[in-house]
Nucleic acid binder design. Structure first.
Length: 314
DNA sequence: CGATTTTGACCTGCGC
DNA sequence: GCGCAGGTCAAAATCG
């Protein structure tokens, strides 16, 4: 691990990963055409085929499994985050659904799910051998959930996404002064996790990685419209600004020739109805995104945060 | 007093 | 096999 590149630096410098043609490139988005005064969104997709998105992104070059062509980023075209000073918010998505195509690694993991009973027995044995060690249930092979990572320009680490999270860990990241925080959804029946860390390159950028799918409506959204709360979407809001976009219906294409992000499995990470669309989508973006009809105009807490000019009521 | 955060210890996977 | 780094657990501390 003597990579001369700082990890967070390589996140932004080298994270362009193309796979199964589901993603190629990035693009900036003006927010609602307000002369750029509201900043812009930057979107970038990355597909995860096993290792964590961040792990992949931290490599100077990424070799995807089962793919002959290397999908490395040109080192010289490093600055992916081309953030202007006027920007107070930007988001980069890194799609990482496991369903990016038939893949040996994923197949193995699916098979592993069948072994829970055996694992419980193993667990007992381990407890015997390790005696007084904490009775953890760690022997289970971890299942890789679909992941999606975002880079968000924000002053706050923990972006409000409509769900309630409990922090369960924090770790120092090698070569980075910023720790990585681990959160789990507070809903007992929901196993969604997310990691949050700041970019070393640009401390104003928060890298959020979601893992898994919520099995319940957003507490925030459900108060107004439970159906909409279950709609696959991704959303963030900060005290400064808000951006949300939804890969529904399982496919998002942002830019005719530069950005493509295909979701092969349903996602349900975020919250909110039309806020996201109206906030983040310029006319340009709307070409590629059609909101589900279930959406209603419920801004939730965003009503308090996002200027109405951003919400752009229809 | 329950929920959440903090934090050190432990576990796992991977590269060498 | 060993060491490192990432990820998780769980007791203690803190908060509302």
């Amino acid at each position: 691990m003597e990579d001369p590149n700082p990890l967070s630096s390589s996140f932004s410098d080298n994270y362009l990963v193309s796979s199964n043609n589901s993603f190629t490139g990035l693009e900036d988005y003006s927010v609602d055409g307000e002369n750029g005064s509201l900043g812009f969104m930057e979107l970038l997709g990355v597909q995860d085929f096993g290792p964590s998105v961040l792990d992949m992104l931290q490599k100077p070059s990424v070799q995807l499994p089962n793919q002959n062509q290397s999908s490395t980023v040109d080192q010289e075209s490093s600055e992916v985050l081309n953030t202007p000073a006027t920007s107070n918010f930007s988001t980069i998505s890194s799609e990482s659904c496991g369903g990016g195509g038939p893949n040996d690694e994923q197949t193995k993991e699916l098979v592993d799910e069948e072994d829970e009973e055996e694992e419980e027995e193993e667990d007992e044995e381990k407890q015997k051998t390790k005696k007084q060690l904490k009775p953890k249930k760690m022997s289970q092979k971890r299942q890789r959930e679909p992941r999606i990572a975002f880079m968000t320009k924000s002053e706050v680490d923990h972006l409000e996404d409509g769900y309630r999270w409990r922090k369960y860990g924090q770790k120092a990241v090698k070569n980075s002064p910023f720790p990585r925080s681990y959160y789990r959804c507070t809903n007992a029946s929901c196993s969604v996790k997310k990691r949050i860390e700041r970019s070393l390159n640009d401390p104003t950028i928060v890298m959020t990685t979601y893992e898994g799918q919520h099995t319940h409506p957003s507490p925030m959204m459900s108060r107004a419209n439970p159906a909409a709360a279950l709609t696959p979407c991704l959303g963030f809001s900060t005290g400064a600004s808000t951006a949300t976009f939804m890969p529904s219906p399982l496919q998002m294409s942002l830019s005719s020739d530069q950005f493509h992000c295909n979701y092969s499995t349903p996602l349900n990470f975020g919250f909110m109805g039309s806020t996201n669309i109206n906030c983040a989508a310029s006319a340009h973006q709307k070409r590629f995104y059609t909101p589900p009809s279930a959406f209603i105009t419920d801004y939730g807490l965003l009503q308090d945060i996002v200027p109405s000019i951003v919400r752009k009521e229809d």
